[in-house]
Simulated assay, not measured.
Amino acid sequence: MTTARERLLDALAEIMRTRGLAEATTKEIARVAGCSEALLYKHFRDKEELMLCVLRERMPAFTHRLTPGEGGVRENLVATVHGGLRFYRKAFPMMAGMLTQPRVLEATRDSLRKYGAGPHEPIERVAEYLRAEIKLGRVRADANASSIAALLIGATFQQGFLLFFAAGTDGPDPAEEDAERLVRPLLPALLPNRPGTVA
């Protein structure tokens, strides 16, 4: 039996996917979930927290567990990009309505800022990971972690859009090779050129 919390997450995910964030009022979320607005606030502080939980729990995981020193740098980045391709392809319909309505965009921006969240998160997470790997000597000392992270996540965003444009959200999942193709050109700027380096 699904809990009220799960029904609320599913309701908001469905509204965002089919009608956009502008239609996702607390009243409508509660109606689709088959519960009261009061119950929504029993499980979530506000609609913004519910939205963040939808992105974290009802969407493909974006960033692979990036633990400095574990696994290979290349493999960790490929896994992260692979998750990002799946995430962005599913997220585009949710974002579209928000982007065309300035007031909704502004409200969403302010709400996410309150929770320290937003589209900058994946870039910062990858940059932080790369900086830690620089300290461990597994990434070149002269690598610009912020720029490489921005290039990698920017390319992931663009390719995720192309996947959505080509087949919508129900097309086949992107292959790992799709992620590999985005990571490979950056490796010379990342990996130390010495024998025995774990890549």
Rank of each mutant, 00 (worst) to 15 (best):
N193E: 15
H82M: 06
I134Q: 15
A175S: 14
F87E: 07
H120C: 00
A175E: 14
E48L: 07
H64K: 04
G71T: 05
E37H: 05
A38S: 15
L130S: 09
T197E: 02
G171C: 03
K27A: 14
A30F: 06
E14L: 10
R113G: 15
A24H: 03
R194Y: 02
A150C: 01
M16W: 06
M59E: 05
L163E: 11
L187W: 08
E177V: 13
L163H: 15
L112N: 08
G83E: 05
F92R: 09
L186Y: 12
L99Q: 13
H82T: 02
F165T: 00
T26L: 09
V198M: 10
R89H: 04
G196P: 07
A4C: 06
R17C: 04
L9Y: 06
A141E: 14
D110V: 06
A141W: 07
G137R: 08
L162S: 14
F165Q: 11
E121K: 12
R138W: 09
E180Y: 12
T67F: 04
E37R: 15
A150L: 07
L162F: 12
R89G: 00
M51R: 15
A167I: 02
K27N: 09
L85E: 01
G34F: 04
E133G: 10
L99M: 15
A38C: 02
D170L: 08
P185N: 06
L40I: 08
E48G: 10
V73Y: 08
A24N: 03
R125S: 05
E180V: 11
L186R: 04
A175R: 15
V54P: 03
P60C: 10
V104Q: 01
V32H: 11
R7S: 12
I148P: 02
L12C: 02
F87Y: 15
L162H: 14
H120W: 05
T18F: 05
Q158M: 09
R131D: 09
R194G: 08
R65H: 10
P68W: 00
D110L: 14
E176I: 14
G69F: 11
A117Y: 13
P185M: 08
K27T: 13
T26N: 13
L136K: 11
D46H: 09
L163N: 08
D10S: 09
T80C: 04
T3S: 15
D10V: 00
G196Y: 09
T18N: 09
E57G: 12
Y41Q: 06
R131H: 11
M51C: 03
G171P: 07
A155K: 02
R7F: 08
L55S: 04
S147A: 14
